[in-house]
């Protein structure tokens, strides 16, 4: 709250997603009441019936754009918000539903729904930034809840958020994990994936599956070479890059390039 008693207005919008990233906000059990006291939650249907009209100081946007209706709705959301922050892999990279982008989406609709005529969906699942300017993208499937609080705090006081841009390998080394790729030859996307999860998967004896999406300067091509040398098939490597952040350009490119090798 500022000294004049003004509470910044925050709204949470959902597009195609699992709800998990906005749930992260409610998962801040120790901080929730303090956060709620510092801001005015104006629109957050998962948590409240209350609706306060915009404009908003911050719009948090979860989910990807997959319908005509949502492609229009995101324009309205952008107009209503001073700062628009996308949260999670769906909003920042198109999500797992972007796997349709390499397939015949009409055929997919026919597979899932008996009356495909009732379904109005776009051929592609796309990140919010392909539709409107975005002020900050918070990565992760799901996002890390403390990043969310840091980001809201930083935005409200007007400083740069302290969110790591380096790779999972940095976190993994700091945790003292044995490198699962070097020691066991496991396919691991840690070297090209943005930190933030705390390098969980290697600590659980499995390779990183890239749920935080590509780090800024990811050299995915080099990693493909390492994985091929360690015995992964091209198909495996492609599937590794094509999960929750498949449509993020670095992973997208790597998943397409591997076929040509």
């Amino acid at each position: 709250m500022s000294s004049n008693g003004y509470k910044p207005k925050v709204a949470v919008f959902k597009f195609a997603s699992c709800d998990g990233c906005q749930l992260s906000l409610l998962d801040c059990e120790d901080e929730l009441l303090a956060v709620a006291a510092a801001i005015e939650i104006c629109y957050f249907p998962e948590a409240t019936r209350k609706v306060v009209k915009g404009p908003y100081d911050i719009a948090l946007v979860e989910g990807s754009v997959t319908t005509h209706h949502d492609a229009q709705r995101i324009q309205q959301v952008r107009r209503s918000a001073k700062t628009l922050i996308t949260i999670g892999a769906c909003a920042t990279a198109g999500g797992v539903q972007a796997l349709r982008n390499w397939q015949d989406s009409a055929e997919m609709v026919r597979t899932v729904y008996a009356k495909p005529d009732f379904i109005s969906t776009l051929k592609m699942s796309t990140p919010i930034a392909e539709h409107v300017p975005v002020d900050f993208e918070l990565r992760g499937c799901p996002v890390q809840k403390y990043h969310l609080i840091e980001l809201i705090t930083a935005t409200l006081i007007g400083r740069k958020p302290n969110i790591p841009a380096y790779s999972v390998c940095m976190e993994c080394k700091r945790n003292g994990n044995l490198c699962i790729a070097v020691a066991q030859g496991e396919p691991c996307l840690g070297p090209v994936t943005q930190a933030g999860c705390g390098a969980l998967c290697p600590a659980f004896n499995r390779g990183c599956y890239g749920c935080f999406g590509p780090m800024e300067s990811a050299n995915a091509e080099a990693l493909t070479g390492v994985m091929l040398r360690n015995g992964s098939t091209k198909d495996e490597i492609q599937r590794n890059f094509r999960t929750y952040n498949a449509w993020a350009w670095q992973f997208r490119q790597a998943s397409e390039e591997v076929e040509k090798r």
């Binding site: 597009f15 195609a16 997959t66 319908t67 949502d70 999500g95 797992v96 539903q97 796997l99 349709r100 397939q103 989406s105 055929e107 997919m108 609709v109 597979t111 899932v112 729904y113 379904i119 969906t121 699942s125 599956y209 599937r239 999960t243």
Partner: peptide, 21 residues
């Protein structure tokens, strides 16, 4: 809520991947 077509894009994935997907 927009359809996300899970049953369709699960085809062709290795079955153990379904646990995370």
């Amino acid at each position: 809520e927009p359809p996300r077509l899970f049953e369709a894009f699960l085809r062709g994935r290795m079955a153990p991947e379904a646990v995370d997907i």
